[in-house]
Design a protein around this nucleic acid. Sequence first.
DNA 1: CTAGAAACTTGACTGAGTCAACTAATTCGT
DNA 2: ACGAATTAGTTGACTCAGTCAAGTTTCTAG
Lengths: 312, 312
Amino acid sequence: MDHVPASPQEEQVAAFRAFSRFYTRRIGLLEEHLYDSPFSLTEVRVIYELAQRAGLTASDLGRDLGLDAGYLSRLLKRFEAKGLLTRTPSKTDARQSVLSLTEAGRAAFAPLDRASHDQIAAMLGRLSAADREDLVGAMRRVQRLLGGAPDADEPFRLRGLRPGDIGWVVHRQGLLYATEYGWDQTFEALVAEIAAAFVKRFDPAWENAWIAERDGGIVGSVFLVRQSDEVAKLRLLYVEASARGLGIGRRLVEECIRFARERGYRTLTLWTNDILVSARRIYEAAGFRLVEEERHHSFGKDLVGQNWNLDL
Amino acid sequence: MDHVPASPQEEQVAAFRAFSRFYTRRIGLLEEHLYDSPFSLTEVRVIYELAQRAGLTASDLGRDLGLDAGYLSRLLKRFEAKGLLTRTPSKTDARQSVLSLTEAGRAAFAPLDRASHDQIAAMLGRLSAADREDLVGAMRRVQRLLGGAPDADEPFRLRGLRPGDIGWVVHRQGLLYATEYGWDQTFEALVAEIAAAFVKRFDPAWENAWIAERDGGIVGSVFLVRQSDEVAKLRLLYVEASARGLGIGRRLVEECIRFARERGYRTLTLWTNDILVSARRIYEAAGFRLVEEERHHSFGKDLVGQNWNLDL
DNA sequence: CTAGAAACTTGACTGAGTCAACTAATTCGT
DNA sequence: ACGAATTAGTTGACTCAGTCAAGTTTCTAG
């Protein structure tokens, strides 16, 4: 069956399904390693849950792990008979009892836990540090997007420039403005040029760049370059569509302003286009004033360029 | 049990395990929906595999899906009895037979396939377009990093330049040479500069670029730029570490040579560094001669640059 | 040409998970 | 406040997915 995906939608569905099949196998492999323990896979899942969370009832377990009530009942009875588990009647509901592992239960769980831990650690160990971070970040993202994890306490983090960053920024901006506004590749080339020039002429005393990260992936960036002793320019502000509404853009601009003030610049300037309305709102809120507009034909489109200034 | 992870390593292992548990449940949910079909989960996996790939034998299936040979044997016999499957004796090995679904088999599979497809599509539909892209991208990443990229019938494909490509190439090269050889960001900047200049001064009659794609991801690239009427230069040859050994590098160089010959160039030249041995092998095999070497200090390292030429 | 391995097949089994029927406690609607 | 419906858990009876070991036939390496 030659599946030639017709639309992006279909391609996404195909990728999702491919991933599910892939991970089903992967989980199978992970579980095989467990098979010299005295517990079945489901038993391990139950013990794991009991070890992690306190105050569980049988129905909690059944619901969360998707187990049959009858099967679970017997399983728990077996655990209790082996002395791994105690049940104390619930105070609020006489039908339920609260489950908790005994010392023996924890002792039985420890080697399993360790084996699983070591197995994963070994797998991660085979990757480079960068790939490891990348992998874990991607997993967090999948989990978050499929509704499996609450947002972290800290929704994003700022850091400085690292290898690979400017390419990534060029890639994402090139793609975004091409799909969203139909700009051609000369825009991407311009971004590449600006980013390259920034790195080559980088003067840490006067310039800086910030990358916003979320779940190990880059979701935004901004560059501050020196134009003269008095004037700094904010360039390449960018926030991923999937990370909007978290205040990342505002925060990046704030960092720029703070840095510019600190270094004694008098004016912060920037160039943008009128169609980029969400960026405009950020600039306005930060106190920038529109000083100039001019029509131009760039990136295959007729556009209205804008210069904005902020007195520091 | 309040798990306060000690080190980043531990945090990564914890995140991985959390993801595995999460996805185990998620897969459970996905599979439940399948449970008004006449097939068991394993049967569905087998049919799916048979529908996707031609020329499978029983042992292929057993190995790939991790099934017991005895169980699989009976399962296949059942399918054959129901007329879903035919076995034709292998020509090369009389012990094996090649399995293929009958029309009836495909017909039985179709509604399952559709149900699974629709279920995933519905899940994706609940997300915003940006989140959808983010999710699928993250899944692809996990799969790539865990080494799960499935072999397509066609291991890779060449295409021209599209928006986002040059940024991606810059990103990957910047990252690769930083991790592998410790080069600093000025290398990434150089790549960005070259790529930007290529796009800005692109002359389709005299120049070209090729992107190698595999499983929907970019795995290699090469650029051909005009230096004079007589001389063309090959630049930014690059193959992903995960896609080496497929002849992608060779193929990209061949395309360049073909194009350069066609346009009537007399010489194809390129610049590289002596430490890049796998690239060197490709150039040698293609007939390039080393014409010049010179020491230089770039990208934070002492290097030996090389110029290679090919008479067309 | 032979020993050992690979590709299945078959018989005998186990045990994970299902289903339905039951008891007891709780909650809901009016 | 009271009966009906719901929820928590238990138990018996069952099924069928998956395992294990012992076989046959074919292939391969020495």
